[in-house]
């Protein structure tokens, strides 16, 4: 087997692509594809967020805000400003990137829990704007989104969206892995270990934090836009702090600092409620218990901890 295939970057990407094909082939009906698409959309956000949390060591409890802005860009821009639906996600992504860039410096000066609070507040402000400006956004009940047309054909089928989501996820993973492997990425990793140490070593800490923040915000916006176009409907819930927290849980559950772990986290947390519906009223208790148990016993996240265990078994 050629060496490049065994690298985590290419090998992991190929494995991910293979899983995507398998899931598509094995899905008994469109419902399974629907869940898979939702997993993919969340995974796109998580891949970016993991770079911010896992590598740059900066927590954000506000990324659902960026997701929501992206979603509403796809809904509001075509409906009120005549922007074509295909261009809206791009406009949304650039605006969110600009916004993230503007707030990044002051916000990222904060540390730990203070940073968590500031990003949480930012997300809530976005949520309130989307809820209260109902002339534009349709208010708390949300608004319909114009379907995407490519060459005049309406893109609304699950097959199409599975393909688009899978492609975008692969692309964002590839981009992220390259970022991680670049000098910037190495600096980011140093950052997580110790900011001061990184600074002393001559790394422009602030600049790299800003890059990770803006990049993850733009990925969140992209996923939000896609989610809106896919479902044909947006509500402010998706920008709410519960969704922000879900996204962080996905990162931590799957494995901070492990890009593929984060995707696994997104898959587990997105599909878990669908499995738990059989427990009816016990659903939440079980979800909470699973979350606690996983974090206690696989504290570095599902993927890294499991890999550790396997490696230990092999050597011991």
């Amino acid at each position: 087997m050629p060496a490049w295939l065994m690298q985590p970057r290419t090998g992991g990407l190929l494995l991910l692509a293979a899983i995507m094909v398998l899931v598509y082939l094995a899905a008994p009906n469109n419902f399974y594809l629907d869940v898979a698409i939702q997993i993919g959309l969340n995974a796109i956000v998580v891949v970016g967020l993991n770079l911010l949390i896992g590598y740059a060591g900066q927590i954000s409890l506000g990324h659902a805000g960026f997701f929501g802005l992206g979603a509403y860009a796809s809904a509001v821009l075509p409906a009120h400003f005549g922007v074509p639906p295909l261009a809206a996600p791009v406009v949304g992504m650039l605006s969110v990137g600009l916004l993230a860039f503007l707030v990044a410096r002051p916000i990222l000066r904060l540390k730990g829990h203070y940073l968590a609070m500031a990003t949480l507040g930012l997300g809530i402000l976005v949520f309130m704007l989307l809820t209260n400006e109902s002339q534009l956004t349709g208010g708390p009940d949300g608004m319909a989104v114009e379907r995407l047309r490519i060459f005049g054909e309406r893109i609304s089928g699950k097959d199409w969206w599975y393909l688009i989501t899978a492609a975008m996820l692969l692309l964002s993973v590839w981009l992220t892995l390259n970022l991680i492997d670049s000098p910037t990425g190495r600096a980011l990793r140093a950052l997580h270990d110790s900011q001061i140490a990184a600074q002393v070593a001559g790394v422009d800490v602030a600049r790299f934090k800003v890059i990770a923040f803006v990049y993850s915000a733009m990925l969140a916006s992209l996923a939000g836009s896609m989610s809106a176009l896919y479902s044909g409907f947006v509500t402010p819930d998706k920008a709410g702090f519960i969704h922000s927290i879900e996204l962080v849980i996905m990162v931590v559950l799957g494995g901070m600092g492990s890009t593929f772990g984060g995707i696994l986290g997104a898959a587990v947390l997105t599909s878990l409620p669908q499995f738990l519906t059989v427990f009816a009223e016990y659903e939440h208790m079980i979800l909470g218990a699973i979350l606690m148990a996983v974090m206690i016993f696989l504290r570095r996240g599902i993927l890294p901890s499991t890999l550790d265990l396997l490696a230990r078994r092999r050597t011991g």
Binding site: I53, I245, M285, R299, R300
Partner: peptide, 25 residues
């Protein structure tokens, strides 16, 4: 979970809060 990352501990308490809400319900 002693010794786990601070963020991991926070997720555990979030899990606990989901569990307690479910229990109360």
């Amino acid at each position: 979970a002693r010794g786990a990352n601070v963020v991991t501990l926070i997720i555990i308490t979030i899990g606990a809060s989901i569990f307690l809400r479910g229990l109360a319900q």
